[in-house]
Design a protein around this nucleic acid. Structure first.
Length: 265
DNA sequence: ATGGTCGGAACCCGA
């Protein structure tokens, strides 16, 4: 039995509905974490997805933010926020639990703050958001469960995750201060599912709409699926779906796809 | 190259 989990910042679910339908048709994922819906919960295009076998768990918001988890398996526990979130009015978190072929799992779809200008109030809030989120996932970890986080982290953790580390040094999403936050998570029992399978790949998940960034491959790997280490034994594949980013009127982010196989205990 | 392009909202803000 196989389980496929996806994370994708769609940059408006209404604008990206057709790409989402095509992506599902091509990849048939079991669980889809979406970010930047830019859509209120009750305005989510549920009817347009009703022919598909997904349960929809939406934490929407008008204009900005908004996250969702779409799952073939119904969730038995749903949370819309985490303890001590310094910006709880922004819809950046949803968590669901599922009984799957690889065991009991908990999945978070997270949209971390961009941070704006380095040193700004937004930037400070981004760091505080990470501190609270890190505390939360450390407390949520359990021996029995596997925890997966599909996220636009808005941080590229290492030099290999950007097109030009020297040029990007000290810019938002690539300051050492931000990297420390994500690396703290990755050094405390969480595994970057793409990086562990591809230690030397210089691939990206986001390219700016401006200045021909995609054509020059000026990108950053800021979207990832990370999991507790107890899930890594099941991990068989993790890739970035560049093709979706090359379509007409795309999101500025590419989906990340991870696949897990059941291993008998 | 302190630009550039999107999406959503109301002609600017966030990314």
């Amino acid at each position: 039995m196989s389980l496929k989990i996806v994370t994708w910042n769609v940059n408006s679910i209404k604008m990206r509905l057709q790409h989402l339908l095509e992506f599902i048709e091509s990849n048939d994922p079991d669980i889809i974490c979406l970010q930047e819906l830019k859509c209120e919960t009750d305005k989510f295009p549920s009817d347009e997805l009703s022919h598909l076998p997904y349960n929809l768990y939406i934490h929407g918001q008008k204009t900005y933010n908004g996250v969702a988890i779409l799952s073939k398996i119904p969730a038995d526990e749903i949370k819309n926020n985490f303890d001590k979130n310094p910006i709880p009015d922004q819809a950046r978190f949803i968590e669901c639990s599922f009984l799957t072929s690889i065991g009991y799992i908990r999945v978070i779809s997270l949209y971390a703050p961009n941070g704006g200008e380095v040193g700004s109030d937004k930037f400070i809030n981004k760091l505080k958001f990470y501190d609270a989120f890190t505390d939360y996932i450390q407390s949520a970890k359990s021996f029995e469960e596997q925890l997966f986080i599909g996220s636009d982290f808005n941080i590229a953790p290492y030099d290999i995750d950007v097109y030009n580390p020297a040029k990007l040094q000290d810019t938002t999403c690539f300051t050492y201060e931000e990297q420390k936050k994500l690396r703290t998570i990755l050094n405390s029992g969480f595994v970057d599912n793409f990086r562990i399978l591809h230690p030397t790949k210089n691939e990206f998940s986001w390219w700016d709409y401006r200045a021909g960034a995609l054509e020059q491959n000026m990108g950053m790997r800021i979207d990832s699926i990370i999991s507790t280490s107890n899930a890594v034994a099941h991990l068989v594949d993790c890739k970035i779906d560049y093709h979706t980013r090359t379509k007409d009127k795309p999101s500025d982010h590419a989906p990340v796809i991870a696949e897990y196989h059941n291993i008998s205990q």
